[in-house]
Nucleic acid binder design. Structure first.
Length: 738
DNA sequence: ATAGGGTTAG
C-alpha cells in the first residue's frame, strides 16, 4: 500500500492528506483510513479541523457499513476549541441517516457548545434526523430555530430537507406551505412534495402538482417524480389518472427505467386490472425481483391465487431468486388455495435463503399451514418461536377461525389474555369472527368491552366484525347500533350489516341498505352482491335477482363468481323455475364443479320434479361427487319412479366410490356442559326421557294441525340420512315419532 | 481544504 509509505507521509501537506483520503471513495477498505488516521494522530494533524473532518467523512461513508464509532473517536480527538461547524456537521449528517435519535442529541450538544453556530448544513441534517426519528417535537423546534437564520431557510437544500421532514412526519399541509414559500425549487423539491402526497394517498393533489410541474418546469421531471405520482394514484379509484400517467411516461421514454415500469405495473395491480398489469409485465424490456413480486402479490391480493403460484414457478424458471415479498405472496396464495405442496416448497426456499427469521414471513408461513388445515405444523412453528409477536398470535387465532375451529380460537385468545399480550385490532376481529361462527354472544360481549378497554374504536376491521358478531348471534339491533356508530363505513362494513339483515330474515331491510350504500357513494363489491342475491333468494324475488345479477357486471365491472351463480340458481330453484335453473347452469362457462347441480337436486326433492332432478343427479354422478346426500336423493327419485335398475346403479356407484355419510350431529351447551346427539345413536344418558319428550312435542305439533309433506322415498333409512342435511329438522322429528 | 436535500417500485 503506497499510502502507508511513512517518509512521504511525514512530508505530506493537509491538502495532500485529504486528497489521498478521498481517492478510494466509499469503496475503500477501512484499513486505508486507519493508516492515514494513524499518521494524522502521530503528526498532530488530527487536531486540525479540515483533516479531522475529512477522516470523519471517510469513516462514516464506508460501505456497506459506516464505521460510526471510528468517526466519533476522530471527533472526540479534536480539541473542543478547534472544532468548527463542519466538524459537527460531518458527524451530524451520517448520524441523521443511521442513528437519527443520536443525531438529535448531537444537534443539541452543538447548539449548547457555544463555540460554533449552526449552519445551513446543520439544519439540513437536523431536519433529516427529525424525519427519520419521527419526532415532530424535535422537527418543529429545529424549524423554529432555522427561521431566525434567513440564509438557512432560503437555501434550496435546507428547505427541501424541511419539506421532506414534514412529509415524513405526515403533516402534508405544512409540507405544502414550505413548498409554496420556497424561493427556489428543483427536481428534488418537486418529487419530494409529490412523494409526500403519495404517502398520504392524496392521489389528486399528487397528480395536479405533477401537471403543474409539467407546465412550469418540464425539464425538472425525473423518474423519481414519475414513480411518486404513479404510487399516489395506485388506489382502487386511481385508474383514470393512472392511465393518463401511462401515456405520459410512455411518451417521455420513462419506461426505460425499471422503477417506473414497476410503479406502473403496481398501479394496475392496485386498480385490480391484472390484465393490464400483465400487459405491462409482458412488454417490459427489463425485469427485476420487484417486477416479479409486484405480479405475484398482485395476483395474490386480487384473488387469483393460482396465477400467483404459477407466476412464482415461472419466476423460478426465469432464474430469479425469490425475495421475502414473493414468498409472502405465494404463501398467502397457498393459504387461499389450500395448496400445501407449493406452500411446503416455499417453506424450503425460505429456510434456504434465510428469510425464515423475518417475523412477517414467518407469520405468512404459520398462516399458510393453519389455512391448509395443518394446524399442527402451524402450531409447531408457532411454539418454536422464542418471542411471539402479536402478528403471529393473530395468525394462529385467524388460522383456527379459518379452519372452523372457533372454540380453539377462543381458547388461544384466552391464553393470550392470560399471558398479558395486548391484542391488536386484527386479533380482536378474528376472535369476533370465531364468536360469530358459533353464535357465542357472551364472549362476544366481553370482546366488546375489551375494544373499549384498549381504545381500539370501531374502525376497520373491528367495527364490521363486531357488528357481524351481534347479527350472527341474532342480535340485529346491536349489530345495527354498532354499524351506526362506525366512523368510516367502508364496503366491508356495509356488507356486514346487509348480510346481518339478510340472514335475520329482513330481506327488505337488506335491499334498502344496499340502496342507501350506493347513495353514500360506496362501491359494492363481490360480497355485497352475494348478500343481495341471498336476500332476493329468501324473498323469492326472481326479477330483482336478475336485475342485480346483471347490474353487477354492467354497472360495476364485476365478473360473477361461483357464489353469484349459486345464488341465482338458488333463486330460480326456490321459485320453482327448475327448467330455467338447468338452462342457466348450462350457459355458464366457468368451471362450477358440483355445487350448482346439488342446489337444483335439493330443490327438485321438495318440489317433486323428478325429471330435472334426475337430470341434475346424473350430472353429479358424471362429475363423481363425493357428497353422499346426492346419491341418496337421486336413488330416492328413481325409487319413487320404481326404476329399480337405476336405484341399484346409483347405490352401486356410491359403494364403488366409497362415499360415506357422516352421521348428522348436533350439540347443545347447558350450564357449561356440552350434550352431543348423533343420528342413529342413543348414547346420551337421558336418551329415553328426551325421546319421550320429543314424542310428546311431535304429538302436540300434530294436534295443532301441522302435517308434514309426505315423502316420495321408498327407503326411509336413506331418506332420514338425506333429511339430516336439510333445515327442516322438525319434519324428521315428527316423521320419526308420529 | 473539510460538511449539504430525495434511494423511488413489491
Amino acid at each position: 500500500m503506497a499510502v502507508a509509505a511513512a517518509p512521504s507521509a511525514r512530508r505530506m501537506s493537509h491538502t495532500q492528506f485529504i486528497e489521498l483520503l478521498r481517492r478510494g471513495g466509499a469503496s475503500s477498505s477501512p484499513r486505508h483510513g486507519e493508516v492515514l488516521h494513524g499518521w494524522a494522530l502521530k503528526s498532530g494533524a488530527a487536531s486540525h479541523a479540515p483533516v479531522a473532518n475529512s477522516l470523519i467523512t471517510f469513516y462514516s461513508s464506508l460501505l456497506p457499513r459506516p464505521l460510526l464509532a471510528a468517526a466519533f473517536a476522530v471527533f472526540d480527538e479534536i480539541p473542543p476549541l478547534s472544532r468548527d461547524a463542519a466538524s459537527w456537521n460531518s458527524l451530524l449528517n451520517p448520524l441523521s441517516r443511521h442513528r437519527p435519535l443520536h443525531a438529535l442529541s448531537h444537534f443539541r450538544s452543538m447548539l449548547s457548545s457555544s463555540t460554533v453556530l449552526p449552519s445551513p448544513h446543520t439544519f439540513a441534517a437536523a431536519f433529516t434526523a427529525a424525519a427519520r426519528a419521527a419526532s415532530t417535537t424535535a422537527g418543529t423546534a429545529a424549524h423554529a430555530l432555522a427561521c431566525k437564520i434567513p440564509s438557512a431557510v432560503s437555501n434550496v437544500y435546507v428547505s427541501t430537507s424541511l419539506l421532506n421532514m414534514y412529509c415524513k412526519l405526515g403533516i402534508v399541509s405544512d409540507a405544502r406551505r414550505v413548498f409554496d414559500e420556497m424561493p427556489q425549487r428543483n427536481a428534488f423539491s418537486w418529487s419530494t412534495m409529490v412523494a409526500g402526497y403519495a404517502a398520504e394517498k392524496c392521489s389528486e393533489e399528487a397528480f395536479d402538482l405533477f401537471r403543474l410541474m409539467l407546465g412550469e418546469c418540464p425539464y425538472e421531471k425525473s423518474e423519481f417524480i414519475a414513480t411518486a405520482v404513479l404510487s399516489a394514484v395506485s388506489v382502487p379509484l386511481g385508474l383514470l389518472m393512472g392511465v393518463q400517467m401511462h401515456g405520459l411516461v410512455l411518451k417521455d421514454g420513462m419506461l426505460d427505467f425499471v422503477s417506473v415500469e414497476n410503479s406502473l405495473l403496481t398501479m394496475y395491480v392496485k386498480a385490480g386490472c391484472m390484465g393490464a398489469a400483465l400487459h405491462v409485465f409482458e412488454s417490459s424490456r427489463e425485469r427485476n425481483s420487484i417486477t416479479w413480486s409486484a405480479m405475484i402479490t398482485g395476483y395474490a391480493q386480487n384473488g387469483e391465487a393460482d396465477s400467483a403460484v404459477h407466476m412464482f414457478l415461472h419466476m423460478h424458471t426465469a432464474g430469479f431468486a425469490p425475495t421475502e415479498f414473493t414468498l409472502v405472496g405465494v404463501l398467502n396464495s397457498c393459504s387461499d388455495l389450500g395448496a400445501l405442496a407449493v406452500g411446503k416448497q416455499a417453506h424450503g426456499l425460505m429456510v434456504k435463503l434465510g428469510f425464515e427469521v423475518q417475523m412477517y414471513v414467518k407469520s405468512a408461513l404459520v398462516d399458510m399451514y393453519a389455512k391448509c388445515g395443518c394446524i399442527g405444523d402451524a402450531k409447531e412453528g408457532f411454539d418454536q418461536l422464542y418471542e411471539v409477536d402479536i402478528v403471529l398470535w393473530t395468525a394462529m387465532v385467524a388460522g383456527h377461525v379459518q379452519n372452523g375451529e372457533h372454540e380453539e380460537a377462543l381458547t388461544l385468545y384466552a391464553r393470550m389474555d392470560k399471558e398479558g399480550i395486548i391484542p391488536s385490532n386484527l386479533t380482536i376481529a378474528s376472535v369476533l369472527r370465531a364468536c360469530a361462527g358459533i353464535a357465542a354472544l357472551e364472549p362476544g360481549k366481553q370482546l366488546h368491552t375489551q375494544i373499549l378497554k384498549y381504545g381500539l374504536g370501531l374502525g376497520a376491521p373491528v367495527g364490521s366484525a363486531l357488528s357481524t358478531m351481534y347479527s350472527k348471534c341474532g342480535n340485529l339491533e346491536d349489530g345495527m347500533s354498532v354499524f351506526r356508530r362506525m366512523p368510516n363505513r367502508d364496503v366491508i362494513a356495509w356488507n356486514s350489516i346487509i348480510s346481518g339483515f339478510s340472514q335475520n330474515g329482513c330481506g327488505n331491510g337488506a335491499l334498502d341498505l344496499f340502496e342507501q350504500m350506493k347513495m353514500e357513494g360506496i362501491v359494492p363489491d363481490h360480497i355485497t352482491f352475494i348478500n343481495i342475491l341471498c336476500a332476493c333468494s329468501h324473498m323469492g324475488l326472481v326479477d330483482r335477482g336478475w336485475d342485480y345479477f346483471r347490474s353487477m357486471t354492467k354497472d360495476y365491472g364485476l365478473t360473477p363468481r361461483l357464489d353469484h351463480y349459486a345464488c341465482m340458481v338458488d333463486i330460480l330453484s326456490r321459485a320453482g323455475m327448475l327448467k330455467e335453473a338447468k338452462d342457466f347452469i348450462e350457459s355458464i362457462t366457468i368451471d362450477h364443479g358440483t355445487c350448482l347441480w346439488r342446489i337444483v337436486l335439493g330443490a327438485c326433492r321438495s318440489l317433486r320434479d323428478f325429471n330435472v332432478g334426475a337430470y341434475a343427479g346424473e350430472r353429479l354422478m358424471e362429475l363423481g361427487t363425493g357428497d353422499s346426500s346426492a346419491y341418496i336423493l337421486l336413488s330416492n327419485i328413481y325409487a319413487s319412479q320404481r326404476k329399480w335398475n337405476d336405484v341399484e346403479r346409483v347405490r352401486h356407484l356410491m359403494r364403488l366410490r366409497g362415499v360415506n355419510k357422516d352421521p348428522g350431529c348436533s350439540w347443545v351447551e347447558l350450564n357449561s356442559q356440552v350434550h352431543v346427539f348423533v343420528v342413529g345413536e342413543q348414547q346420551h344418558p337421558e336418551s329415553e326421557n328426551i325421546n319421550a319428550e320429543l314424542r310428546r312435542l311431535a304429538k302436540h305439533v300434530k294436534d295443532e294441525g301441522y302435517h308434514p309433506t309426505p315423502k316420495f322415498s321408498f327407503n326411509e333409512e336413506l331418506d332420514a340420512l338425506a333429511e339430516s342435511h336439510e333445515e327442516d329438522q322438525l319434519e324428521l322429528i315428527s316423521a320419526a315419532y308420529s
